[in-house]
Every structure is written in C-alpha cells, then in structure tokens.
C-alpha cells in the first residue's frame, strides 16, 4: 500500500504550485494554508518545505523575494512564474486523468459490473 508520506511527497510540487497560483505566500503561510485547506490531512515536517520550495525555484517554476515587515522581520514571499503556471496546468490534467481512472476502478458504474 502507498503510504500517506509517499502520496504527499509525490504530489508536493502540484500542491505548492497550486497554492502559489492563487497568491504569493511565505513558507509559514504555505504550511498553515495547506493544513487549513486539507483540514489537517497535509501535515508534514515543516523544515522539508524549504528544500521543496528551493527545488521549484531552481527549476524556474517559482520565484522568491525578501520583504521587510514593519516589525523588522524579513520574510521570503514566493510567487509562481509563467513556466510554473504551464507546469501546474499540465499536472492538473494528469491528476484529473488519474482520479478518473482510480474512480472507475474503486467505484465502477453499476452497468459496467
């Protein structure tokens, strides 16, 4: 059986790109948003988020910019690039095909049984 950890690992790029497609976010905000939107399902070791973000940045799918807050702290906001958006669109199609295929096996239509 595929573990939850492997599922998250395998879909981390799509999840991160999808979140950043809506708005630019910083690391901690991404963790909170993932937790909230998935109702706690996507809970992972938070330190591993940054290597994943940096891999996406190196691949040119997202960009990061430091911003100074009024309290003097600095945060790095990430936003999706055009290349990242194209990659996300492709991954969405793949996910949809995958979900349809899974559904056809797990919940077959009565006429096909």
């Amino acid at each position: 059986m595929v573990s939850k950890h492997d599922l998250i690992k395998g879909s981390s790029n799509s999840l991160l790109l999808s979140l950043l497609a809506g708005q630019s976010m910083y690391g901690y905000q991404i963790v909170k948003e993932l937790e909230t939107r998935s109702q706690g399902y996507f809970k992972f070791k938070e330190g591993t988020l940054y290597p994943a973000l940096h891999r996406l940045e190196k691949a040119g799918l997202i960009t990061g910019n430091w911003q100074m807050l009024p309290n003097g702290r600095q945060r790095r906001y990430y936003q999706i690039t055009a290349k990242g958006q194209a990659e996300l669109n492709e991954e969405k199609v793949q996910w949809q095909d995958f979900l349809i295929a899974i559904k056809m096996i797990l919940q077959p239509e009565p006429s096909r049984i």
Partner: peptide, 16 residues
C-alpha cells in the same frame, strides 16, 4: 514539527 536537522540538511544539499 520542523523535523530532524539531518533530514532537512540532506534535502537542502540535494536541492542546491
């Protein structure tokens, strides 16, 4: 919650 330093460092190393 952050995770082990060894795991994070390894992933950062591989990212860079």
């Amino acid at each position: 919650q952050m995770g082990s330093t060894k795991m994070i460092a390894r992933q950062i190393y591989e990212a860079y």
